[in-house]
Design a protein around this nucleic acid. Sequence first.
DNA 1: CAACGTTACGCTCTTCGTAAAGATG
DNA 2: CATCTTTACGAAGAGCGTAACGTTG
Lengths: 308, 308
Amino acid sequence: MTLKQLRLLREIDRQSLNLSAAALALHTSQPGVSRQIQQLERELGAELLLRRTNRILGFTELGRAVLRSAHRLLDEMENITRIAADARDERGGRLTLATSHLHARYTLPEPVRAFSERHPEVQFQLLQADPDDIQKLVESGDADIGVSTEFAREHPSLVQLPGEALRRSAIMPRGHPLSRRRRLTLADFAAYPLVSYHPRSRGGQMITEAFTAAGISARHVVSASDSDVIKAYVAKGLGVAIVPSIAIDPRADGALHAVDVTRLFPESRMTISLRHGVHLRRYLTDFIAMVAPRLERAAVARAMQAGG
Amino acid sequence: MTLKQLRLLREIDRQSLNLSAAALALHTSQPGVSRQIQQLERELGAELLLRRTNRILGFTELGRAVLRSAHRLLDEMENITRIAADARDERGGRLTLATSHLHARYTLPEPVRAFSERHPEVQFQLLQADPDDIQKLVESGDADIGVSTEFAREHPSLVQLPGEALRRSAIMPRGHPLSRRRRLTLADFAAYPLVSYHPRSRGGQMITEAFTAAGISARHVVSASDSDVIKAYVAKGLGVAIVPSIAIDPRADGALHAVDVTRLFPESRMTISLRHGVHLRRYLTDFIAMVAPRLERAAVARAMQAGG
DNA sequence: CAACGTTACGCTCTTCGTAAAGATG
DNA sequence: CATCTTTACGAAGAGCGTAACGTTG
C-alpha cells in the first residue's frame, strides 16, 4: 500500500470512476492508474472496483470502506505538509474562507484588509455560501475556516468557536409610527408587514420562530436572502424588518430608523468553524485573532485537540 | 512522503532514537533508515531530528508534530488492512482484551470460552489491568477492546458502550448481626469495620463517596484490589464488605451471607470501550455480542462512526 | 468509431544492501 | 575501541510512458 495508490483511489471517486480523468488530474498515464489499483487490490486480497470487461461500474463495499479510510489518511498527510510549511516559516499559502452574506459584507472586510496587508503572500479566497454549504465546505476541507452563525446540527469533525454576540435591530423608514416608540415588543410588529429573510436562512428561522412562540402571526411581504435587499425594500416603505445591527450603516442608511431589539430574540453569535484535528497554519490563527480578538491562540489550539 | 518513511519515523521514536534498532525492527538496513529520513526532511524542507555529527539527540518540534500525525495516519493504514482482511472473510486474527479483575474473573470466562469455540483461529489475549491502564491500552490500540466500568475521564478517541448495570451486595459472615436485617441502610454499616477496595479503584471510590455523602464515617480495615481477597477477609470475620453481586458464588461462598444493596449506591455499568473510528472485525463484533447481548451490531457501528 | 480500460514492452530512476568512512564517549 | 550515523557504490527492481489490444455503446 502506498500513498500514491490511495490518492489515486480518491481521485477515481472524484472523477466518478473515470480512470483516464483521474490519470489526467494527477498528471500520470491511464495504464499507470490501472496498474496501481490492481496492485493495491492484489495486496489487500480483494477487489475495490466493480468491473465488467474494461469498464468500471462502481466501488465494491470494501472499496467504499477503503475510500473512507483513504480520505482520513490523506487528510492527515496533507496536514503534515501544512505543519512542515509552517515550521519552515513559509509566508506563502492559501486561506479559503466560507462565509455568509452578512459577514462577507459587514464583518469581514476590515479584518480581511488587515490580513492581506500583514500576509500579502497568502492567497486569500472568500466563498460566499449559505449555512449548510458553509458547513459542508469546512467539513470537506474545501474551506479552511467558516464564519457564520451557529450551525443547527452538530458534527464530530467540526470545531465551533463562539465569537461576538450578534445584536439585532428593527429597521423602518424614518417617520414610521413604530419609530416613535421607546421600547418595542414583538406584538408591536403585528400591525405592519414584515420584510424578512428567506426561511431557509438561520436568521429567518429564528425570527419566525420567535413570532410563532409569542403567538403573533407576522405578515411577510418579501423574503430576501440578504440584508442589503431587505434594507432596500424597507427604505421603499414596503414594511419593517429585523436585521443584525452590524448591517446598518448610519451614514449610508440615512433613510432608515433603527431600534435595538436584541433582547426580543434568542442569543446568536458569530461562530468560527474549523475542521477538527487539522493543523492551523500561523497565518490562519492570525486571521482568527483579527476576526475574533477574544479567541486566544492557545484556546483555539486546545479546542482543536479536544473532542470535536 | 511515503508510508515507509512515516513508519520509520514512528519506529525511531519507539526505539528511543536509535536508528540501528529501528532498522532491525523493520527488517532493513541502517543506511536505508538514515537515507529515508533525510529524504523526508528534504521534502518537508526542515529537519525532523536533532543531530550532532553522527549522533541523534532528539526530535525537533516539527519532528514531534509530524510524529503525532504519523501515528494517526499509520493507524488509519492499519485500519485499511483490517477492513480488507474482514472483506476477505479471513478467519484468523488477534483479539486483545483489556479488563479488570472483576470481569476477568466473573463476567468473561463464559463469553471467552464461547468465543474461542466459535473462532478457534483467532488468537485471544486477555490483559488484566487497572482502570487507568485499560483506558490507555485501548486508546493506544494495544488492546482492541476494554471491558470495565465507566472511565472517570472522557477521551475523544474512545467510544464507551454501556452494558449491563452492576448490582452490588453487602457480604458478611453467616450469623452476622446485619444478616438478620431485611433492608439495610448505609448507616447500618457504620458500626462494623469495612473490608473495602483500594481507593484507587473505581468501585472503592464510589463506595467511599457514598458514605461520605451520607455523612457516615466508615472504618476501613483492609483495602484490597479485588473481590476474591475481600471475600476471604470477610469470611475470616474481619468485617463486612460491599462487592458486585456477580462476584458471589452461592456454592463456593457458602460461608458468606449476601444482601442486595444496589439501591444504596450510584448506578454503575459494565462498559465496553473501543477506539473511535477503528474498523471492527467481524469476530470482534461477535465477541461484543457475546459479552453484552443487548448491544446490537448496528448500534455499535453507529457509535463508532459518530462522535467519540 | 470513439471512448475507455487492460496488457505488453523497453527504459529510467529509485532504492536497497554491502562496504567504507567519520565521529563520539 | 566499540558504537552509531553518514557517505559511496554497484546491482536489483519497481514504476513509468508509449504503443498496441480488446470491448463496449
